[in-house]
Simulated assay, not measured.
Amino acid sequence: MVVLLPFVLASEKVFILTPSCIISKQLAADFGSPTAKTSFFLKCGFFNVINKKLKNLVDQPLVTSPDEIDDLEENELVIFNAQKFSGKSRLSLSNQDSKDGVARMLRQFDTIIVDEAHHYPAATWNNIINEFEGKKVVFLTATPFRGSEDNDEWKKLIVKMETVFEIDLCKLEGVTIRRSEFVSRSCAYAPFGPNFLSKLKIDIEEYLNQHYAQDTRASQRKPQAMLLVRRRTEAIAVAQFLGDEATYVTSDRHGTRNLDDFTKGIKRIVVVCEILREGYDNPNVTLVLILRNCQSRVLFDQFCGRCIRIRRDLTGQKVDSTRGTVMSYDCFGQAKMWDARMKKSDSDPCEESESD
């Protein structure tokens, strides 16, 4: 969707706003950076081989780092995460020393595509989008908005916008995304104690084996699992208990290396807290486990979405038939969150911070 929009809108200079560096890098790969091998057009069959036409199509000047911002006038496509424009950053829109120059830079673009748009109207996102008054503004989200009828910024946005396309989740399941199920199991053990972790290990293996049996064409890359916990210390402890097949990804110096191991299939299980809760697309993930009392509908829905990406690289014409499983334990009280998943959220009061 994002890759096609600049062409559909006949845009000349496009700014894509994301919530994280991970999503920015994934989108850059879809656009064919740094190599055409990763481009959306090749993966989805627009081209069968890398030829001159494909190279010309994906040969878009691209900026994903603040270090390259000085060359911005020469770039037709910029992918940036919103946090680069906040605080004391050299690109901050709230800093008196930098905001005028950054605002002039943003006004050079004729189009802004806002990915994971449920983050609006957070202040940083609002400041950026305000600079595109009168330009082409496209909001994309698969998650109910976090706005409220009492929020003035939200009301002003809704008045100016129209819903161009909206589709029910049930119409996509089994076609472009996996069908999914929710399982909440009882557990008599204290969370994160040795007995609890032993049961967790058995349950993960059970469901991953079930998923493998549902579509054995995935034999080269077996199904994988993602676990969501609240604290970094929990992420590390759980990954260590689960053994050599598991790793953890948090916002520390090991995060990039560990994520790479999981993405390549070297590790089958990853435990996360601060990051990878949204926007991380890995079609080998078929099982997600929520090991916390999550009260945020946006966070819950986003993490459920990590297991619904259909694999496109399987042999034959049959669509990936693996079912995505969202699992938790009764002690975390997540059944009510699943029941409310299809309801649009008028508010999201629990934008929870992660800490030790």
Results as ranks from 00 to 15, higher is better:
280 Y>I: 10
280 Y>P: 09
281 D>A: 09
281 D>K: 14
281 D>G: 09
281 D>Y: 05
281 D>F: 05
282 N>M: 07
284 N>K: 08
288 V>I: 11
288 V>Y: 04
288 V>E: 06
290 I>A: 00
291 L>V: 14
292 R>A: 10
293 N>V: 00
294 C>I: 06
294 C>L: 03
294 C>N: 07
295 Q>D: 02
295 Q>V: 01
296 S>C: 12
299 L>M: 02
300 F>P: 07
300 F>Y: 08
301 D>C: 15
302 Q>T: 14
302 Q>I: 12
304 C>E: 12
305 G>N: 06
305 G>C: 02
305 G>S: 06
306 R>L: 11
307 C>M: 06
308 I>D: 12
308 I>A: 14
309 R>D: 06
310 I>E: 08
310 I>P: 05
311 R>Y: 06
312 R>Y: 04
312 R>G: 13
313 D>Q: 09
313 D>N: 14
313 D>A: 09
314 L>V: 14
314 L>S: 13
316 G>S: 08
317 Q>C: 07
317 Q>D: 14
318 K>N: 06
319 V>N: 12
319 V>Q: 12
320 D>Y: 11
320 D>F: 11
321 S>E: 13
321 S>I: 08
321 S>Q: 14
321 S>T: 15
321 S>C: 09
322 T>Q: 15
323 R>S: 09
325 T>L: 05
327 M>V: 05
328 S>V: 02
329 Y>S: 01
329 Y>C: 00
330 D>I: 00
330 D>E: 03
331 C>Y: 01
331 C>S: 02
331 C>Q: 00
332 F>D: 02
